[in-house]
């Protein structure tokens, strides 16, 4: 397998293949979205975890054709998963006097929705998985990606780390792999 590209996003910093992209550094996730994508209003319905993964994937997969992506997979790792949204959802049910559970929040209280959002956006019908680990482990990532290439027909995998705590604390390190 071969690593084709890497995108790294955290507050104040956006690198592709280790090179800082000055025009996008220091922008919020929504501002990055407006620069690199636009025209996908569903973005604004997403929670922080999905927005983080979504914009990183936009930059990572830029220029690939639908055919190249069609059988692609999204295999991500993270620690917090959907916890930021879990806390927001909890706020809609805590007070019995103001009890209005929000379906639009609840759907994002699953850690794997970010893999689904990327798969939907890029029409990737290979695998999708979210694995929770205590910290980013690039060796675990490469082993998992290699095993997925060995054991399935997917020719392309978006993998890496996606974690979101709040607007001041999030990180995506996404890698694009192809099967040789």
């Amino acid at each position: 397998m071969r690593l084709l590209k890497q995108v790294e996003i955290q507050p104040g910093c956006l690198n592709t293949d280790g090179n800082r992209i000055d025009s996008l550094c220091g922008l919020s996730l929504s501002e990055i979205y407006r620069k690199v994508c636009n025209g996908y209003p569903k973005f604004f319905k997403m929670d922080g975890l999905c927005k983080t993964g979504f914009v990183a994937a936009e930059i990572l997969l830029e220029g690939l054709t639908p055919e190249q992506k069609a059988e692609g997979s999204v295999i991500l790792f993270g620690r917090a998963g959907s916890l930021a949204t879990d806390r927001n959802y909890e706020n809609t049910i805590r007070d019995p006097e103001n009890y209005y559970p929000s379906p639009a929040l609840f759907v994002y209280t699953l850690a794997n929705i970010v893999t689904g959002e990327i798969a939907i956006r890029h029409k990737m019908q290979g695998e999708s998985s979210m694995y929770v680990l205590p910290e980013y482990d690039s060796e675990a990532e490469t082993r998992t990606v290699q095993a997925a290439f060995d054991e399935s027909d997917t020719p392309l995998i978006v993998s890496g780390w996606v974690d979101y705590e709040n607007d001041d604390n999030y990180q995506a390190i996404l890698n694009l792999y192809i099967k040789d």
Binding site: P41, K45, S102, P103, V107
Partner: peptide, 17 residues
């Protein structure tokens, strides 16, 4: 507006709230 099934559920909440 291109709303979907989750939007419909959220509208139900809006109506009640």
């Amino acid at each position: 507006l291109g709303l979907d099934s989750i939007d419909a559920l959220e509208l139900i909440v809006l109506m009640e709230r």
